[in-house]
Design a protein around this nucleic acid. Structure first.
Lengths: 224, 224
DNA sequence: ATCTGGGTAAACACAATATGAAGAAATCGT
DNA sequence: ACGATTTCTTCATATTGTGTTTACCCAGAT
């Protein structure tokens, strides 16, 4: 699967330059022009790496970082700061706010790419993270691709994991089949109607029959 | 609350220019550089207005518009198209695809702002009364397909939910049986006279007998 | 008394899921 | 590159909950 990188910078030129380079390297790139949009986008796409400009109007990079770190679903995301050289106070403050790296700009594309690669490699390693976010007896660690159910860690196949992940992300919310298809399978893929049911059944047999509630004519929900 | 505007354009300069002006006017601005990102962002932030560039690589504005119009949660969002002057075919196609306005670029900020204001004023009247307010002890979250009654979240069957949703949307207004049929069942479906009663009965037994008032010879209303 | 419009419980029909099995399609190990 | 294994999808059939109808009730108006 393509690694997802989120770029947040108020300067469109930077977005374009860096974004282009990342795309050339095969990353899936998302961009936002301000902090809030960045956070929203991060929640939406759950990127593997977020590159944050420190200096932005309204909400600066530090603040964005803090919010990301406070979000259960994103707290493990790797964050790199991007800022003008010689603002060395930034370095300290940035790492303190929970950043994983600090990149001075202007930066040569080659250099940036190797930094990005290194960061992603690092995040790829199973960084030990107990990750105590339990909902209805199930906790998920997206980065490790693992599910803990009743203290047992189990590894689900990709589709099952992603389906569980989706439903689990908002317990009690009913996801329509359409929702599920577009989130788990993607908008363009066409699969039969019964496919979702089958995956639900797998999850039910592995995690408990009544954790997944059918809402006829609408979809499924996780929990209560 | 700040009005939310989503800008979708593949040209970062345009995003910046328009975005900046909108922000100065006090709008909450979100931007996306391509159609898919725009749709994702729209689903995330549920904007009041979406400004769509017609010409974009991969997915053009028309297509984005169609997808938005097909999304239950977004279908009522106001959409304005933005495109180069003299592509007059666009105007027709755009409005046909469900656009609410059409803006030729280049456009002077002043002009754009007044258009935006006008559009939002218009949308303000009709709907955009989204989330989470309680009416007579009942609140509805359409996105989650859930109803909260006395603090209890419950999931109703589809038809019951839609019926409640309709009546609840305008408490005190009497909906005729015809109203109800066309909104909940659709104009072409033919059902017997007692069908609506039965669903009202179900709702009454689940949410309280006196929340739904019968108006003999006319229809039903929700609340006082 | 009769008529009109709605209330209600129970029966019914059917589309929507559940489910087992089997056929594709990836993925893995060698 | 190959078969072995796992995962994903489709298919056929059983099952179920929802939506609808039915049948009969009641109340108020005529």
């Amino acid at each position: 699967m393509k690694k997802k990188v989120l770029l947040v910078d108020d300067e469109p030129d930077i977005l374009e330059l860096i974004g282009y380079n990342l795309q050339m390297e095969g990353y899936e790139v998302h961009t936002a022009l301000n902090g809030q949009a960045g956070i929203d986008l991060a929640r939406e796409v759950n990127p593997d790496l977020i590159i944050l400009d420190v200096m932005m109007p309204e909400m600066d990079g530090m603040e964005v970082c803090s919010i990301i770190r406070a979000d259960d679903n994103l707290k493990d995301t790797t964050i790199a700061f991007l800022t003008a050289r010689n603002e060395d106070y930034s370095q300290v403050a940035g790492l303190e706010a929970g950043g994983d790296d600090y990149i001075a700009k202007p930066v040569k594309p080659k250099v940036l790419m190797s930094r990005v690669k290194a960061l992603l490699r690092r995040s790829n390693r199973t960084e030990s993270k107990p990750h105590q976010n339990e909902r209805f007896g199930v906790s998920i660690d997206r980065k490790r691709f693992s599910v803990i159910y009743n203290g047992q860690e189990l590894t689900l196949p990709k589709k099952e994991f992603e389906l569980l992940n989706l439903l689990w992300s908002e317990p009690g919310r009913v996801f329509t089949r359409e929702n599920i298809l577009s989130e788990v399978w993607g908008n363009d893929v066409v699969v039969g109607d019964r496919t979702i049911d089958v995956h639900i059944r797998k999850l039910r047999s592995k995690l408990g029959e009544d954790l997944f509630v059918t809402v006829k004519g609408v979809g499924y929900k996780f929990g209560s």
